[in-house]
Structure formats: structure tokens, C-alpha cells
Amino acid sequence: MSKKIVLARKKQGLTQEELASLAHVTVRTIQRIESGESVPRAFTIKALARALETNFEELANEMGPEGLGNQPDLSPIGNDPGNEKHFLQTLCLSCFSYLVIPFVHFLIPVYLLRKQAHSHPETVAMARAIIRQQIYWIIVLHALMLLTLGYNLIMAAYFNKAYLISYLVPFFAMYLANAFMIIATFRRVDQLKWVTVSN
């Protein structure tokens, strides 16, 4: 089977990295399969067959009697598109915790992601992007507050406090912006489509 995957990959003109990206597995997984170090699970074979534009049976038939046929279905829980979408929507909504515990609220989606240990790689990537978005929001909020402080200090020193900016202006502007970002991400998640991997 390993030789067949190598030949199919080369026929498609793909590197191991490109195949890993298309199949949503790690490069190390591709390396282990191609070298014969590990026997891939049904889910992985289906993902590879899809990426290599071949069929599952063609690759699976290469497995010996001790291989795929005797293995339990170890496909990740995250293969159900409904579960994936629900998880990402929950993660999005958890970001609204910034209204109650700002600056450390991103720890809640981080916890949810760690708890969801068997998600599809695409889901994990999307979840990490959502968490990064919240961390960037915190950084930008702090930067705006510091800029407002600097501006107010300069105004107070040279213009007798004539044009001071209230700290509530950038604070509430960023809070409102984050609410819109979370809602937009939630809608994007709702429109995402996952490929259902059937057994």
C-alpha cells in the first residue's frame, strides 16, 4: 500500500507536504505511511484516496488480512459535520465571555478546544483562528488604550486639556467591534461545509 500511495502522489505531482494538506493529516503521518512504519486507519485511507483522486477500495485492497479489515472503526468523532459545526458555533459564542471577563476570556475557547480532543483538523484550524482573533483583539484594545493615554498626556501638557479623549470611547468601540467580529465568524461557521466521511 505504501508504494501505491507514493506512486499515486508522484503521479499527481504532489509533495508529501501538499498531500498532507489536501488530506488534512500531518506530514509525519504521510511519511510513516509511505515508509511502511504505520498502517493507516479507514478514515485516513479515505482522506488520502480523495486527495489522490482515486477510490478507497483501490487503496484499501492493498491491506493484508491483519490490516484494515480487522481494525475497529477509529474515525474521529469530528467526522460528523453536525458535530463540527456545533462545536465551532459553541466556541464562537464562548468568545462573548469578554463582556464579563475581558483580557483573559480567550482561555474559555482554549479550554473548549482542548476538551474536544478528536476534532477534524479543519475544525481545529478554524478554532485556533477564532482564538487568535480574540488574542489580537486584546492586543489592539490595549494598544488603543495606550495611544489614548499618550494623546491625553500630550494634550494636557501642551494644550491645557482642551481636546482630551475619554477612555470609554476606544473601550466601547472595541467592545462593539468584537461583538460584530464574533457574529460574523459565527455566520461564516454556519455556512461552512464539511465532507462527510462515510464508513
Rank of each mutant, 00 (worst) to 15 (best):
F43H: 11
P40F: 03
Y98K: 03
L149R: 08
R187A: 11
Y98A: 01
A162L: 10
I5W: 09
V6I: 15
P72K: 10
A179L: 15
T148M: 01
Q191H: 13
L112F: 15
I139G: 07
L168S: 12
L168T: 07
Y111Q: 10
L176E: 01
F56H: 07
D73P: 05
V39I: 11
N61Q: 12
F87H: 10
R187W: 05
V169R: 08
K161C: 09
I101Q: 09
K4M: 13
K4N: 09
R114G: 11
Y158S: 08
P81A: 06
N199Y: 07
I77H: 11
S75I: 03
Y158P: 00
V39F: 02
T54H: 04
A127H: 08
I139A: 15
Q71R: 13
K115T: 04
L147A: 15
A143G: 11
V195S: 08
M1E: 06
I33A: 04
A51D: 02
T148F: 06
V6T: 14
V189E: 04
L164Q: 12
V195R: 13
K10Q: 14
A60R: 04
D190F: 02
K193W: 01
A8Q: 10
P81D: 04
V197N: 12
A47L: 14
V25S: 01
S97R: 01
Y175D: 05
I77A: 14
W194C: 05
T123F: 10
I182F: 04
V195P: 02
L52P: 01
H24K: 09
F171I: 01
G36N: 07
R132Q: 12
I5R: 05
A8I: 00
A42N: 09
S75H: 05
P76Y: 09
K193T: 13
P170V: 02
H142M: 13
S38E: 06
F96C: 05
F96Y: 15
K10H: 12
T148K: 02
I131H: 07
A162D: 10
Y163W: 14
F103D: 06
N55Q: 07
G69R: 15
M145Q: 13
Y136A: 03
S35P: 03
R187D: 02
Q133A: 10
S198P: 00
N70E: 12
C92R: 02
S97I: 12
F172H: 04
I130V: 06
T123C: 12
I33F: 09
E84I: 06
Y175H: 10
G13F: 05
Y98T: 00
L99N: 11
R41P: 01
G64W: 00
K46Y: 02
M181S: 12
